[in-house]
Design a protein around this nucleic acid. Structure first.
Length: 270
DNA sequence: GTGATAACCTGCTCGC
DNA sequence: TGCGAGCAGGTTATCA
């Protein structure tokens, strides 16, 4: 499940390979989720950027438009030095570039999306339009984070997944950060100190994920088709009914806002 | 504006 | 062995 570390890993790999390349041919699955991919034929790609879990590519030249890609649950962007592998039944779109390389968008569950929008016009993508600050933005501090969290009374886990208080956090890194900060995922109000701890923990787990090339539980692959290794560092995610690494209590799992959430009922509170 | 819920999707696992 | 149910979860749409 690509979250910020996985998306950023892909972005860093794609940027030098795609910048300045012209799209010579494109194909997409007929689903409206992927059809906009075809609009890029003849256009030149800019430097790949990222906002939260969204990849954003400004199209160079006279076209004032941007390519927006969300990997969803199982999306992969592969850059290969050969024609597209049309035998792959999960191939949803591909772009052939003017240097004979191909960018393939593979998505088993079809939760990913491709959009082409006027530059900066994200009204049709509410999650992107309302995304909170980037976790590693130096101008974003704990006071801002605390203020963002105070706007809602929903459980802290739900707030993190909404992308509003901070961008790029998904189910895995939310559980890991809450464990690290010793905060119960059902907490609805955080004091300033706990908000400080949570922001520090979020930055720590996201940084770790990035350093390890992302977390591969099943589907995630980077732009070279390789797995990440951060799954070996997880403290709580996927460890329900096993002993907490910090206090040895048995980890509990429950659905919060429809998402499986794992936490320690002892050192993270009841 | 906020919160809750369902739907979108397909592969895998488990129980019968 | 085959079948059906349940689960995984990020985003969007809809309703209260």
């Amino acid at each position: 499940m690509p979250e910020l570390p996985e998306v950023e890993t892909v972005r860093r790999q794609l940027e030098p390979r795609l910048t300045g390349r012209r799209v010579t041919e494109a194909w997409s699955h007929p689903s409206p989720k992927f059809v906009p991919a075809r609009e890029l034929v003849g256009k030149r790609l800019g430097a790949m950027g990222r906002r939260g879990k969204f990849l954003i590519n400004p199209i160079d030249g006279e076209h004032d438009i941007e390519l927006i890609i969300h990997l969803g649950m199982t999306g992969q962007l592969l850059c290969v030095d050969q024609p597209p592998n049309i035998e792959n039944q999960h191939l949803r779109a591909w772009w052939m570039l003017d240097n004979e390389t191909t960018l393939e968008f593979i998505d088993v569950r079809r939760f990913g999306r491709i959009r082409v929008v006027p530059s900066g016009d994200y009204d049709s993508i509410p999650t992107l339009a309302n995304a909170g600050p980037e976790p590693f933005d130096e101008s974003f501090d704990a006071a801002d984070f605390w203020q963002n969290l105070r706007r809602s009374r929903r459980p802290i886990k739900t707030q993190l997944l909404s992308q509003r208080p901070i961008a790029g956090v998904g189910n895995i890194y939310a559980d890991e950060a809450l464990w690290l900060a010793q905060i119960n995922p059902k907490a609805r109000r955080l004091g300033r100190q706990r908000a400080d701890r949570l922001l520090t923990a979020l930055r720590e787990v996201l940084e770790g994920g990035l350093a390890n090339g992302g977390t591969t539980l099943r589907d995630y692959r980077n732009a070279d088709g390789n797995k990440g290794t951060n799954q070996h560092q997880l403290m709580v995610y996927g460890r329900s009914s096993r002993a907490c690494y910090r206090c040895s209590a048995i980890l509990r799992s429950e659905q919060i806002d429809g998402r499986t959430t794992t936490w320690c009922p002892d050192c993270q509170g009841k």
